[in-house]
Amino acid sequence: MNPRHAAHLDRTVRIELLRARAALEREALAANVAEVGRSLGPLALLSGATRSRGGSLLMQGIGMLRQYPFLLSSLTALFARGAAASGGVARGAGRAVKWGGLGVIAWQAWRLWLGAQRRAASSRDSTPFR
């Protein structure tokens, strides 16, 4: 084999190996980014909050309010005293809207929690015993 040809073949093989390595690293990076996205999602934060207790639950709630500012604005609008009067709605109807909003929030949180519990139970049931 010609030494020039061997050097060219070595260079070609090295380039292909580098391309394959770069593709694997891109794939690993994409998987890690997706995992971080799932762990920082609202469902993961909410399921983590159900396992927490005391001060850590409070800190997690503050963290959620920082990450999702619309929650704070929705809660303040829900509990604002002048909200019912400014819209021309009677005082009793304003209270009903507030309690209805709280009910919807509680119901959605309950559904998310039950879904997380079902997924955890199904993943535990699907793993084989060793």
Rank of each mutant, 00 (worst) to 15 (best):
A49C: 06
P128M: 03
L78G: 03
G100Q: 08
F70K: 07
P3D: 10
R21D: 12
M1Q: 03
R124F: 04
L72Y: 08
L58W: 02
A31L: 11
M59S: 12
A23R: 15
A30G: 07
A7Q: 14
V89M: 15
W107L: 15
K98T: 15
Q67C: 01
A23E: 13
G88M: 09
W113Q: 11
G55H: 07
G41H: 08
S52K: 13
L65G: 05
G103Y: 11
P3W: 02
S73G: 02
A77W: 04
L58A: 12
R14V: 01
Q117P: 00
A85R: 15
A80E: 13
G63V: 00
A6W: 02
L65E: 05
P128A: 06
R21Q: 14
R14P: 00
I62N: 06
A34F: 08
G100H: 12
K98C: 11
R124D: 09
A30H: 05
A121T: 04
F70I: 10
E27Q: 13
A106L: 15
A28F: 01
V36S: 04
S73M: 08
S56C: 01
L46I: 10
R38N: 09
F70W: 14
A109N: 05
A20C: 05
A6G: 01
A7W: 02
G115Y: 00
G94C: 09
Q60M: 14
L65D: 05
R21E: 14
A80F: 02
R81W: 03
E35G: 01
A96F: 14
R4F: 00
S122M: 10
T127K: 04
L40W: 08
G55P: 00
A31Y: 02
G103R: 11
M64E: 07
V13K: 07
A120G: 02
G48P: 02
T127I: 06
L102E: 05
I15D: 03
G63A: 14
R91C: 00
T127M: 03
L112F: 10
